[in-house]
Simulated scan of single mutants.
Amino acid sequence: MNDMKYSMKSVFELADELRANPARVELTQALTLNASKPSMGLKGSMGLFGSPEWWEHIGSGMMPSKRFSGVIERAYYAGQGGTGPNNMVDIITDEGRPESIGIYVNNPADVQLFKIGHRVEIVYALDELKQQPGPDGEVNYSKVAVKMAVSTQPVK
């Protein structure tokens, strides 16, 4: 990989999304607390979604996380109907593996930054689901996008 520094633009912060959409926090927390739905929602073992305790566990590294970074090979719309702004990118990670990741933006105009050859970075918090174990027998997590950035210029 090239050692060159790239100008990155932060395009998504979950904290900003949750401030703009408090109903998402309320609904997610309500499902976590709903004992009549034991296989739906988050477990809450690291605090209720969006709570100060939850953010503290993310910040301290106690909640597992997953980071992907790499160069965009393809940007596209995934979903029924086949039209709309791009919402997915395929990247080649810094480790040389292909990955498909969703596009997250606080400002819809930033979707246009996700172009072939641009660098992208995303961090997910891995929040444990109530439904355990996962299909592979391991811990079943919800991948919650916490932050995303994209380069302002192509890197290759």
Rank of each mutant, 00 (worst) to 15 (best):
126 L>P: 09
63 M>P: 14
7 S>W: 13
39 S>W: 06
26 E>M: 11
113 L>I: 00
23 A>M: 09
92 I>E: 14
77 Y>R: 05
114 F>D: 00
128 E>D: 04
56 E>V: 00
42 L>H: 02
103 I>L: 06
74 R>D: 15
69 S>N: 11
95 E>N: 15
8 M>D: 02
116 I>L: 15
133 P>M: 04
74 R>M: 13
91 I>G: 05
94 D>K: 05
44 G>Y: 02
97 R>P: 13
71 V>C: 11
22 P>Q: 05
112 Q>S: 15
16 D>Y: 10
71 V>T: 12
69 S>M: 10
111 V>S: 05
32 T>M: 11
91 I>M: 07
44 G>W: 07
111 V>H: 07
59 G>K: 08
117 G>K: 08
4 M>H: 12
77 Y>D: 04
74 R>N: 13
110 D>R: 00
100 S>Y: 12
84 G>Q: 03
57 H>N: 14
29 Q>V: 01
43 K>G: 03
68 F>N: 04
60 S>D: 04
81 G>S: 03
17 E>P: 12
30 A>Y: 02
82 G>I: 04
70 G>K: 02
66 K>G: 01
111 V>D: 03
43 K>F: 07
91 I>Y: 08
21 N>A: 05
114 F>N: 00
135 P>H: 12
55 W>I: 01
117 G>E: 01
107 N>L: 08
51 S>Y: 03
37 K>G: 00
80 Q>I: 05
41 G>Y: 02
16 D>W: 07
93 T>P: 12
17 E>D: 15
17 E>N: 10
37 K>M: 13
102 G>S: 14
68 F>M: 09
8 M>N: 05
14 L>V: 05
99 E>D: 09
57 H>D: 15
64 P>I: 10
83 T>C: 02
25 V>L: 07
83 T>P: 00
101 I>Y: 06
24 R>M: 10
109 A>G: 03
44 G>K: 03
29 Q>S: 05
112 Q>V: 14
72 I>V: 14
5 K>Y: 12
116 I>E: 13
77 Y>M: 12
105 V>K: 01
8 M>Y: 11
9 K>E: 03
91 I>F: 13
